[in-house]
Design a protein around this nucleic acid. Structure first.
Lengths: 211, 211
DNA sequence: TATGATAACAGACAAAAGTATGTTTTAAAA
DNA sequence: TTTTAAAACATACTTTTGTCTGTTATCATA
């Protein structure tokens, strides 16, 4: 290819590799070579080596298609969405999973799930009937956080408060009363870290999970 | 490895490959072989061939690490998020991209972007200040849709209406007036297909986009 | 127990991909 | 202009990986 100013082709190659990696298709050195119309493998190789040295890419030595993004950039995982919530102790059964949606998070897997909200007790906080809340089960809960809780076997989304040393679950809709459940009837499932609303049909990812 | 009942190892291999692909690390035939402690490459190969024949996997012939998930399962793409919107004709400049978030959609790439909302003119529709709306530029617009529009070079999110043959942009907050811009001052950028709110710090994917 | 289908194994070859050495051309800065 | 560094090229070698042919073992069912 034509000679470019120092750094220019380097950045373009980074963009290319980055996109391929985010698409789940790590390129070979020769695919990079071809994408930039280079006549020598080494042209691509040395750019890739440089990107690794700069810390913009990571290389698994020896392996084919071995370039990766540093962990911080790649952090996209799939969270299961459950529609109805089973009564009793809260655990996610495979049968209840509607599908998966992509979530970016640096936390460990299996700690985030999605829950479809029913009811309008949180509309003043912008959580409408039918919205999906993403819940992290491993978060510490602080007053003011929006949480998913189980009260008497029922799942609800509310704002977490404390008053007189007791936990209060506060709706964000003046038409609803504050709940002050007895500790033995209350389980905090997790903290709401994200709210999503799909205004068009949602197509969830991945069904065939049996076996 | 030990002999298993027909179908058992097949499913386990599918799970393995699926996870690897969703993690962005397509395996080689020999990596599958190793993961299941098989003593022959062909053992893994024939399972993979079978999975392709069943339609559970797709193969790019000849290429290394060439197994893929069928499109329906994989359909997750990255949409750019723009914070401020440039005045003038609407086009997404690289400089304005804050980062990327994963979106599941079957539509073509480059037609969806994210926009950070400012203002509270849509709170009754559950769109709060700071929320991110995902916008598809290729959608048909119908009355009742929530749209991103440019009025006199300013970007706004409103509900799309028609009255007396004229376009109206209706806020969803009684404190705000309905807009009835002249056609020449109005550009409909696209339709809001999703609303997201990040209650914890959001870490966008990918920063270094210069070059 | 007999039989067909599935599963696993063995060994080999060709193509793809990673890696290495050295040279030529252009850009950036002294 | 000269010098130094970056960019691009040419070629070769090794390892990894895809693919093939054929054999043996186990499962499911009659």
């Amino acid at each position: 290819m034509a000679y470019t100013k120092p750094g220019v082709t380097r950045n373009r190659i980074y963009q290319f590799v980055r996109k391929r990696l985010l698409d789940g298709e790590p390129p070979t050195v020769r695919e990079v070579q071809a994408a930039f119309h280079m006549r020598a493998v080494q042209s691509a190789k040395s750019h890739l080596d440089a990107l690794v040295k700069e810390g913009r890419l990571i290389k698994v030595p020896g392996k084919s298609r071995g370039y990766r993004l540093p962990a911080a950039i790649h952090s996209s995982q799939l969270a299961p969405i459950i529609g109805r919530v089973p009564a009793g102790p809260f655990n996610i059964a495979i049968e209840d999973i509607e599908g998966y949606i992509p979530v970016q998070s640096s936390t460990e897997e299996h700690t985030i799930f999605g829950l479809r909200v029913s009811g309008d007790s949180m509309t003043d906080a912008g959580i409408m009937d039918g919205d999906i809340v993403l819940v992290r089960t491993s978060s510490e809960i602080h007053p003011g956080d929006i949480v998913v809780a189980m009260v008497d076997g029922e799942t609800t989304v509310k704002e977490f408060r404390r008053a007189n040393g007791q936990v209060q679950l506060q709706p964000r809709n003046t038409a609803y009363p504050i709940l002050s459940p007895a500790p033995e009837d209350l389980t905090i499932v997790g903290k709401v870290i994200e709210v999503r609303r799909y205004l068009e049909g949602i197509s969830l990812i991945g069904e065939q999970l049996n076996g």
